[in-house]
Amino acid sequence: MNKRIWVLGDGQLGAMLAHAGKPLALDVRPVDIMTPTDEQLPLAPQDIITAEREQWPESALSLQLSTHPHFINGPVFGRLADRFTQKSLLDELQVATAPWEAVDNHSNTETLHQRYGERVLLKRRTGGYDGKGQHWLKQAENSVIPTDWRNHAIAEQAIDFDEEVSLVGARGQDGQCHFYPLTLNLHQDGILMASIAPLSRLQPLQAQAEKMLSTIMQGLEYVGVMAMECFRLGDKLLVNELAPRVHNSGHWTQAGCHIDQFQLHLRALCNLPLHRPQVNFQCVMVNLIGIDKDDRWLSLPNAELFWYNKEVRPGRKVGHLNLSAHNLQQLTDSIQQLQHWMPMQYQAPLAWILAEFAHA
């Protein structure tokens, strides 16, 4: 009988986990936990539970899943979903992150500016992603703390970083950790637009990043794939955010590695053999955000399309393209073709990709 894994959430990450489970003969079943229902699932004692998100609404269904004895990493999700407890963990483990503090009834903007400078970023403790749940305090604009953010936010020092990178790794049940190469990311309005990996110029930072993420996963006794988003400041990394799950910046592994992040996560959960994934070639990932599906993308000889079959709305992730970069001329031609086909908001990210390879 195939091992059965239930996924809290049935979005694109759950769908890709289910797809990755098929070659391993794993029965991966994403569960819609956003639609209220009295349904109970036929869970068996040996089933495994994972999640594609850090938070979920409480319901009979989500409680049935999250209280199962084989809900792997159960205590970790809530701890990392709250930016206060996530930041506290990083400080406790002595992993570098931006200076911060909780925002409460005693917080005032003058003191925050004295401690952290002219620009201070407020982040909601829970729920904010893709640029949401953030509020800037700018001394020049006399910004104030929104009343309803007190006791529900943290304040961070603004970081003038050189660029954003991420590391995706996995920890097995035996405590061994395995990592993909560092990924270079470009965000626009707080939303990930494109990723490139691997890059030889990031290699000198690989050991530092692996030590940081290994410390975190070991400290949590975490099992499975975790993503660590970082700011690069010269030759130093600061953790921005952690995701206890497969991650958007790891999608390039579907094309570029012999074990992608989804299969690596399932292997770890099921105690199957783990080892460092082999990188077959360099990849570029382009997120498809708020745009209609265009079958012309399929004409690109080095492109793999992953379409999420969601309703297209502004700012919504509806798919991604993975472009292999083992042939530089072919990659350049494909990116230039996408510049002709894609709307204005894609011109800067596509130009960023071309510039990165021009300087490689």
Rank of each mutant, 00 (worst) to 15 (best):
D160H: 13
A44M: 13
P244T: 01
K132Y: 05
N240W: 00
K132V: 08
I154T: 13
A348L: 15
C270I: 09
H275L: 13
F281Q: 15
T111R: 12
Q329D: 15
F231C: 02
V246F: 00
E156G: 07
D10H: 14
C230F: 01
H187V: 02
Y346P: 03
V223K: 00
V318R: 10
T183Y: 01
P244A: 02
A158N: 13
P204G: 04
D148T: 08
A358I: 08
D104W: 02
L61Q: 05
V7D: 06
I159F: 02
N185R: 09
V168Y: 00
V239K: 00
A51N: 05
I196D: 06
A209H: 02
S324N: 15
G117F: 08
Y346K: 14
P198S: 14
G9I: 04
L112M: 06
Y116M: 09
R276C: 04
Q263V: 06
E101T: 12
Q12V: 03
G74I: 03
Q139F: 06
V76P: 03
C230A: 05
T109M: 11
D32W: 09
R313Y: 06
E229S: 08
S88F: 02
H247K: 04
N185K: 11
K138R: 13
A96T: 15
L323K: 07
M16C: 12
A98S: 14
I49H: 09
T35V: 03
A268I: 04
R267L: 10
P343C: 07
G219L: 05
S59A: 08
T111V: 08
A243W: 00
V225M: 01
N185F: 01
L93S: 00
Q254M: 05
V318G: 11
N142C: 05
L90N: 02
Q345A: 10
P45G: 09
S249P: 12
Q46A: 06
E101C: 09
N280C: 15
R29P: 14
G74A: 07
V279D: 10
L137Q: 07
N309D: 13
T183S: 10
Q94Y: 06
L274Y: 01
E210P: 00
M1H: 12
A51L: 03
Q12S: 04
E58C: 05
D82Q: 11
Q64A: 10
K310P: 15
H258G: 11
A153R: 02
G21M: 08
D162L: 10
P349L: 02
K317Y: 03
L167V: 01
Q173I: 11
K293V: 14
G131L: 02
E101G: 07
C283R: 07
K211Q: 15
H340A: 12
L186N: 14
V165N: 05
P244N: 04
D333L: 12
R83Y: 07
L122M: 12
D104L: 03
G78P: 14
Q173H: 15
G250I: 00
T37H: 05
Q206D: 14
Q157L: 08
P349I: 02
K22Q: 08
A20N: 13
I5C: 05
I159G: 03
A325G: 10
L338K: 05
L242R: 00
L182W: 01
E241R: 00
Q64I: 12
E54R: 11
L220F: 06
A81G: 08
H326G: 14
Q40E: 13
S334Q: 04
E304P: 15
K236F: 06
G175E: 13
V279Q: 10
S299I: 15
D260M: 06
T183I: 10
A98F: 03
Q339S: 15
L266S: 11
D104P: 02
A140P: 10
G250D: 00
